[in-house]
Nucleic acid binder design. Structure first.
Length: 765
RNA sequence: GCGCCCGUAGCUCAGCAGGAUAGAGCACCGGAUUUCUAAUCCGGCGGUCGCAGGUUCGAAUCCUGCCGGGCGCGCCA
């Protein structure tokens, strides 16, 4: 198993030599080994001579010569003689034998039969069902551990082949928080990037050998739930009256601000209907016995799930409009109603609780479906939403938000003073216009954050109405993750990664500072806010529907699949046409080769469509905005998912042909060696050998696009190899086996790399 | 006003532990197929790296200022 990248190996060998020349201990020199800027300069280069020349007060080329003399004996087995070039570069060309040996050490995939290891079709992640939410919120790491079962060993995603790469020697316990959808709303494009990027980071870190626990910090608690529950009540009463379409019918009138008279008329109709319904529902009798309509309705729908998320969303908009109109009416007839409902919920009223649970369950069902569709590994066990920090779970019901407030008051209160020992951040908690606010200072006592008037900016942790905010929840969450969250090897994360859009940067800086000041984030803990830019439409404005609404994630994924399917159909038709022109005999084509069944066509389209969406998102640096463009992401050429999937399918096609013509030789047999005589073979081999250093960079910098670039280069290297080096018709048996081995390594590497990106390969296109 | 991100070829983007002549893809022009999927490959065209200073043997990369775009700056998340 490979611990070291080629770059590591060279760095180690050069370090000793450079140390000798520089007169420093080897661990204090960086020999500046970098991939060569241009293939004609070799494979790697050592750039240290120029900077070293300054401190040694001698000429760069002389220093290069001394390094060369000192290192050459240590390099004899792996590199060709070094060349000094330009101002003092040392160009390194690895020996072909070294590349052959390095790749030769990659064992055949052991854990499964060969045919599968090189990429047999595997179904997507099994659809997960969100079951009873509160129960699911319990113990995110079950006995055996979710990290163990999924990310850590990769049981639930097809990652049984490590392509010779060993896990890190010192695994860390890592939380990756991503996706973060809201209850009672469909996921939309706004959730796409966090979900996709977070999933890749979780996969890559798990692959590196870390214990990864995913956390889905869903928005399932807070003031908006009064509105959601009211919406459900309206649905209930409309159905009870035998007018199931009442909300759909009234909403356009309520929402049409251009016709204020009609709008207020509609409002009055709804309001008087509301009052009659209310009397019918709640007779005021004690013990809930007076609740005649809504409560039984809630119990029923829990059984048959007969209210859809679409309806809940619609009812939410409906109630929002009612609030909006009510504000401008005399006496504000709905004044405070949602707040009252919210407070009933927060006091644990059975009816409100039941309504909330229903909305939550329906949303989580929908999310699970979307995750499965997207091929994202989040499961119900990963959910610790806002409600968890208020309510705890069945095993351990407790209000962690209250605990956070208490602890902040104890540590930062007036008498506690500043600063806390062992932290560089000081904090003070104060009541400010009825809200509880934490102020943060550096060790000079200067405010860390300022508002637009230059005055110190506090972080509100409790509103004047006593409600908590996201800052409180985030504090409670990190405290929980660092102190309570179980991992296979122990309790508490050593690293926490947040994947959210860049606009939340200030918020994260503030709450990180606060958590440091409180002593929760210690120097032993690493926290990262992984930010990303926006998804833009063709107009370079944030992506919206033609009507200006948010783009629903489900609709987007369906469209991806539909477009991919059309594209594949067109291609198949074009291939057929070409075949006919050539008299139907000359060219083996897709159709001739496989006669792909409709079900497989659908599955191929699904994988290509989803892959295109994901890859388009991942291929650019996270922080830049990107333009969402169907044609570009589904293009069959260039740096796209289909191009790489095609490269993979081409390799698999060779294997099918090989099986027909020559059987299936064991390309990992002891006698098979890699021959890298042709430049295209060598280039492919070098690329394959760079997998380790690529993944190391991705894991260190949390940059999926680096992996994308690597895979694109790999696919392109393979294509060139494919064009110039016949595999099955190779000149002799040895080179055929060598080339088949290269093909197999390329397929495994593509499959692993795409797998880390959450993209499933296909056997044929 | 302050803070953060961004500005590289006509378009979309890499490159930014300072390194050689700044790279891809798309588009455009030209070429390659008796051969394992032409959904491919090869060649050509195309750039004052926003502007101006500075540090350095060397700057797209680091520093300062400016210009242009996006985002953020207490009771939303």
């Amino acid at each position: 198993m490979k611990h070291n990248s080629l770059q590591d190996i060279l760095t180690q060998r050069f370090a000793a030599a450079v140390a000798t020349v520089a007169g420093l201990p080897p661990d204090q020199v960086d020999p500046q080994i970098r991939p060569a800027g241009d293939p004609k300069f070799g494979d790697y280069q050592c750039n240290v001579a120029m900077s070293l020349a300054r401190t040694l007060k001698s000429k760069p080329r002389d220093v290069a010569q001394r390094i060369k003399d000192a290192v050459e004996s240590r390099l004899a087995d792996i590199a060709e003689p070094l060349e000094i070039a330009g101002p003092g570069f040392l160009n390194i060309r690895l020996k072909d034998e070294l590349l052959a040996q390095y790749l030769g050490e990659i064992p055949a995939p052991l854990s499964e039969p060969r045919a599968r290891a090189t990429g047999a079709s595997e179904p997507g992640a099994p659809a997960t069902r969100a079951s009873e939410p509160r129960a699911q919120a319990t113990g995110s790491v079950a006995p055996g551990g979710t990290a163990q079962e999924r990310g850590h060993t990769g049981a639930a995603w097809p990652l049984t082949d490590r392509v010779g790469l060993s896990p890190v020697e010192q695994p860390q316990r890592v939380v990756v928080e991503y996706s973060q959808p809201n209850i009672a709303k469909q996921m939309h494009v706004g959730h796409l990037r966090s979900t996709i990027i977070g999933d890749v980071l979780a996969r890559v870190l798990a692959f590196e050998g870390h214990e990864v626990v995913r956390q889905n910090h869903i928005g399932d608690w807070g003031t908006q739930f009064g509105l959601v529950i009211l919406g459900l009540w309206h649905i209930c009463m409309a159905r009870d009256r035998g007018e199931p379409d009442y909300l759909q019918k009234m909403l356009p009138r309520l929402a049409n601000k251009r016709d204020p008279e009609n709008r207020t008329a509609a409002f009055d109709e709804v309001k008087s209907q509301h009052d009659r319904d209310y009397d019918r529902d709640d007779t005021g009798a004690p013990d809930g016995k007076g609740k005649l309509v809504f409560l039984p309705f809630l119990e029923r729908i829990h059984q048959n799930k007969s209210v859809s998320l679409d309806e809940i969303e619609l009812s939410y908009r409906y109630v929002t409009q009612l609030q909006d109109i009510s504000k401008d009416r005399e006496g504000d007839p709905y004044h405070g109603l949602p707040q009252r409902v919210t407070s009933w919920l927060q006091l644990g009223d059975a009816q409100e609780m039941l309504a909330w649970k229903y909305c939550r369950a329906i949303t989580l069902d929908y999310c699970s479906h979307t995750y499965a569709h997207l091929g994202v590994l989040l499961s119900p066990q990963d959910i610790h939403g806002e409600s968890f920090y208020s309510l705890g779970d069945d095993k351990d019901p407790k209000d962690r938000l209250r605990e956070v407030l208490q602890e902040l008051r104890e540590k930062f209160g007036a008498t506690a003073g500043l600063p806390r020992e062992g932290t560089r951040v000081r904090a003070a908690v104060r009541d400010d216009e009825g809200a509880v606010v934490v102020y943060l200072y550096n060790d000079q006592g200067e405010p860390l954050f300022k508002d637009r008037d230059g005055k110190k900016l506090g972080m509100i942790v409790q509103k004047s109405d006593e409600a908590y905010l996201y800052a409180t929840t985030d504090l409670a969450a990190i405290r929980f993750r660092l102190r309570e969250l179980p991992f296979p090897s122990g309790v508490g994360a050593q690293r926490v990664i947040y994947v959210t859009d860049a606009r939340q940067k200030l918020h994260f800086e503030m709450f990180f500072a606060c958590a440091r000041a409180a002593g929760w984030i210690t120097d032993a803990v690493r926290v990262d806010h992984v930010t990303f830019g926006s998804v833009l439409g063709g107009d370079h404005r944030p992506l919206k529907t033609r009507e200006g609404g948010t783009v629903k994630l489900r609709e987007l994924l369906d469209e991806a699949e539909r477009r991919a399917f059309e594209l594949l159909q067109q291609r198949a038709a074009a291939a057929e046409e070409r075949r006919d022109e050539e008299d139907g005999t000359a060219r083996p084509s897709l159709t001739a080769d496989t006669a792909v069944a409709p079900a497989e066509q659908r599955e191929i389209a699904r994988r290509v469509g989803i892959a295109a969406v994901k890859y388009a998102d991942l291929r650019n640096d996270r922080n830049s905005d990107y333009v969402f463009d169907w044609d570009k992401m589904l293009a069959l050429t260039g740096n796209t998912a289909p191009y790489m999937m095609y490269a993979y399918a081409r390799i698999r096609s060779i294997y099918r042909k090989a099986a027909e013509r020559i059987g299936s030789p064991d390309v990992y047999a002891a006698g098979v060696t890699l021959a890298l005589a042709h430049p295209a073979e060598r280039a492919l081999a070098l690329r394959l050998a760079r997998l380790r250093e690529t993944i190391d960079v991705v894991a260190a910098d949390l940059t999926p696009h680096v992996l994308c670039t690597y895979l694109y280069d790999l696919a392109a290297d393979f294509m060139r190899f494919y064009e110039s080096c016949p595999v099955l018709d190779a000149p002799d048996d040895a080179s055929r086996l060598s080339r088949m081995r290269l093909c197999d390594l390329a397929a495994r590497t593509l499959r692993l790399g795409l797998g880390l990106l959450g993209i499933e390969v296909i056997e044929r296109m």
